[in-house]
Nucleic acid binder design. Structure first.
Lengths: 241, 241
DNA sequence: AAGCCAATTTTGAGCAATCAAAATTAGAAT
DNA sequence: ATTCTAATTTTGATTGCTCAAAATTGGCTT
């Protein structure tokens, strides 16, 4: 009886060798991101359908296929959650996606605000060999251009809890380390303001009533940001690290 | 009446915007190569099915779809031929394929004998923007690692007639400029013998009865090659160029 | 308890690409 | 002319992914 359901070999690219169409890869990656964003809750079909840009019925039937492939656990009317194997595949895809993004910026000189969509297409087409060459060429980087951590080839990520501009201490310098949004418009705005990963800034004050955050950026006028936008910009204090 | 069938705009990527699934792109590229190899003859369904690795019925129905899309001219039981528009698409795909191959070798350091299959997957996934960056990074190269010419972004190629080791003059030094085979085994053999594009060698003699060609390679023992293999290795005399 | 609502699932259908196997056809051989 | 044969085309199914629209369901109101 080959291939007992438990205790599978997690080495190499085992997760990707069988049922893995690029559609499956996209669903799994999206489920992973939704799950992170909702703190491990089951993802509902309506939500999944929305983020995948399909009608709910499509999500339902696709999820059944994912369940058959052992990538998710599906509770009818209760939602869906990745299995260990699905998690692994998602991390592998995230590794691909983020390495490609960084590659496009660093080696080909594309604009960081546009590489997300490029990487979306490429992540399914690139071989492991090419991926590892890219990793090597880039010097085994830890984060992509948005500051998102790059999983290891074994499928591990370290995702430290971080403060954001919406809740970090006031008056102290903060280094921007990550931007949680892939929308080119938003990213270009961030860039124009000098709020890209790497910049050091200070939050002057917050006005909860106005939902606004005032920010001091060296050599620039003070700007102000909506609270929702501020929450998408993660920081750390330059002291540690 | 928009879009008159004649006189279409050949600029940009017009050929690729509508019906172009990667399957279509593969059929068209393969048809182009077969057509070059058979001197403009119509390609028969059996042949097409073989090179595409499908059963003949599949080739027939696919070719009808290509004909509907205006990419080929199809004569039932007579075969198929690319239209101007199909030719254009094929050249665009060949440009992608060859630039990617060269990129993989030059930038990522992959072995030239293996890049063909990698490029096969990537050529459908890469955007025009990324492609043009690659072209720029490589300095607008004229040929890929096998010596195959890279079509321009407008879809033009210059494919000079060349002698091969099977028919070039004896005794005179010749520079190898192109290898007409993508099989990794063959390419690795070529490499071990020092017969890659760029090498300069001399054909000592040919023995038609034995179907053999004797070759002198600087700093190496004389080797001998079968006539069929010799015909796949194209040369030019170092004088011109 | 009955009704209602919104989310979900089911059903039926379609498209692209494929195969297997049967039917057709063009041309060569008799 | 008839027959044969090999290539080709047709037909009918299948798979993966999708949508539209109908049916179901679980929980909330009243």
């Amino acid at each position: 009886m080959p291939g007992a359901p438990d205790s599978f070999d997690l080495s190499k690219n085992h997760e990707r060798e069988r049922v893995t169409s690029s559609t499956v890869e996209n669903y799994v990656r999206q489920l992973y991101l939704e799950q992170r964003a909702s703190d491990g809750e089951m993802i509902l079909m309506g939500r999944l359908a929305t983020v995948m840009g399909v009608v709910p019925g499509t999500a339902t039937s696709m999820v059944k296929a994912l369940a058959d492939a052992g990538l998710v656990e599906y509770q009818p009317r209760g939602g869906v959650r990745l299995t260990a194997s699905g998690d692994k595949l998602a991390l592998l895809m995230l590794r691909r996606h983020r390495l490609i993004e960084l590659f496009l910026v660093k080696v080909l000189g594309l604009d960081w605000s546009t590489v997300h969509d490029e990487a979306d297409a490429l992540e399914h087409a690139i071989s492991d060999q090419v991926l590892e060459r890219i990793d090597k060429l880039l010097g085994h980087p830890a984060t992509d251009p948005h500051g998102d951590p790059i999983p290891t080839s074994k499928g591990h990520v370290h995702e430290p809890r971080r403060m954001s501009l919406a809740n970090c201490p006031l008056g102290k310098p903060q280094r921007i380390v990550r931007v949680l949004d892939q929308d080119p418009e938003f990213l270009q705005f961030i860039e124009r303001q000098g709020l890209m990963p790497g910049s050091t800034i200070t939050v002057g004050s917050r006005e909860p009533a106005a939902e606004a955050v005032k920010i001091r950026i060296p050599r620039r006028q003070e700007t102000s940001l909506g609270l929702a936008a501020a929450a998408k910009i993660l920081v750390e204090s330059p002291a540690n690290s």
